[in-house]
Amino acid sequence: MPTMLEVRGLAHRYGSYAAVENLSFTVAEDELACIVGPSGCGKSTLLRCVAGLIKPTAGGVTLHGDPVDGVPADLAVVFQDYSRSLFPWLSVRGNVEFPLRTRVSNRTERRKRAEEALAWVGLEAAGSKYPWQLSGGMQQRVSIARALACKPALLLMDEPFASVDAQTRADLEDLLLRVRREHGSTVLLVTHDIDESVYLGDRVLVLSKSPASIVADLTVTLPAQRDQIATRGSARFVELRTEIARLLHDRPGAPPPPNAANSDALAAERFLAAEREEARQQSSH
């Protein structure tokens, strides 16, 4: 299968702090690749570099052969925080139409495609509601519909299901699997949840603690049709998740410091602050 995304020697540092170091991997067309790593390991930085939202310090990203410089036109991102990423002044339909504004000039065509995308996620009846009138799970379905509406070559998802309850999360996972089966999307999904990465992915890329680098690249040898109960109970699933857990937690030569959880959270906060600062500076020039 042809390569959709290629990341080569990617590095990003905030001042003297390296968030990502020498990362290389590819994602094939129609593949769903999950990136799993401890929190604060630089996953979001990686995703932002791929999306062209921040410029990597070194290395490069190519999307279907074209080097990424600035945000590519045929890319969409679903962020974790749906409540902050949907535009509160736009109706659900308005939100889904938003990315089409620069892509589709015809109004009725835009409307049609938005309705279509809403139907994919089962929200055809909610078009004229406002995001804040919907539950969290429904709001995240709106952001998924919005991302799919522009038929992106690559769909990036940053911890998309981390802010919803367990049942909604399972529903959204299955929704993502169904939608990508029906529409053949290439997806790169970042998560800190090992089970989720195995359940959703065709491949799982395991990242180290920061500075992030790839520790393992596992192919998920599970049947394409997944089931929340049967798949998660299968021997292969358990094997894979155990392997990833080992890779993450007992990396030879890198014993986690005693206050690991704490320092992860701190690192995550630092990255976020540094990113905001950078974005602010960029936008002021």
């Binding site: 999306a51 939202l53 945000v71 890319l75 969409a76 504004r101 620069t102």
Partner: peptide, 21 residues
């Protein structure tokens, strides 16, 4: 919210458009 701006940017909106939209 910087995330709203990122969202608009991630859909390929340039600075002037982000300001307007």
């Amino acid at each position: 919210d910087p995330l709203l701006l990122d969202t608009a940017r991630s859909f390929g909106h340039r600075r002037a458009r982000v300001l307007a939209t």
